[in-house]
Amino acid sequence: MSTPTIGRFVTMRAQPGKGGELADVLSKVAAVLEGAPGCQMYVICRDKDDADVVRVIEMWTDQESVNAALAAVTPEREFTVEDVLGKLTGRPEVVEFTPLSGPGMPS
């Protein structure tokens, strides 16, 4: 398995009371990405103190893999990128990082 070179923490704020719906759609995205080339991690997290805040932790081997995965998110998959964006109060906050080492890191 290739070592990831792209990492992201993405924080999304759902419209009031829509955090569960947002998490459900993102879980469908995660299911599509399971086994996708270059996707090393795509974990959906719900904020402990605010149910309308959902975070994604993701790691990828390269940008080409990210682009290919986005192309796979189509209406035929029962959801679209707009299904995610339509549940948000604003733009997602994205923090990019370079994965280095630690438990759970692919080698």
Score class of each variant (00 low, 15 high):
residue 84 V to D: 02
residue 101 S to C: 13
residue 6 I to M: 07
residue 92 P to I: 00
residue 37 P to R: 12
residue 60 W to F: 03
residue 40 Q to L: 10
residue 19 G to I: 00
residue 21 E to I: 04
residue 51 A to G: 10
residue 74 T to W: 05
residue 69 A to T: 02
residue 93 E to I: 13
residue 83 D to P: 02
residue 44 I to C: 03
residue 9 F to C: 11
residue 51 A to M: 11
residue 51 A to K: 12
residue 97 F to K: 05
residue 23 A to W: 02
residue 29 V to Y: 00
residue 69 A to P: 01
residue 78 E to A: 14
residue 35 G to S: 02
residue 64 E to G: 14
residue 90 G to Q: 07
residue 48 K to E: 14
residue 81 V to R: 13
residue 19 G to T: 05
residue 101 S to Q: 13
residue 10 V to S: 04
residue 15 Q to M: 14
residue 3 T to L: 14
residue 35 G to M: 08
residue 72 A to Q: 10
residue 25 V to W: 00
residue 13 R to W: 05
residue 89 T to F: 08
residue 13 R to E: 10
residue 50 D to G: 01
residue 65 S to I: 00
residue 91 R to H: 14
residue 45 C to G: 11
residue 79 F to S: 03
residue 67 N to S: 14
residue 100 L to Y: 12
residue 13 R to G: 02
residue 16 P to M: 06
residue 16 P to D: 12
residue 43 V to A: 15
residue 24 D to A: 15
residue 57 I to Y: 14
residue 68 A to L: 10
residue 74 T to A: 10
residue 8 R to D: 01
residue 50 D to L: 00
residue 71 A to L: 10
residue 31 A to Y: 01
residue 24 D to G: 10
residue 55 R to L: 10
residue 66 V to E: 07
residue 69 A to C: 11
residue 53 V to Y: 03
residue 69 A to D: 03
residue 23 A to M: 00
residue 20 G to V: 11
residue 57 I to V: 15
residue 38 G to V: 04
residue 48 K to A: 14
residue 68 A to D: 08
residue 74 T to R: 15
residue 72 A to E: 12
residue 51 A to Y: 02
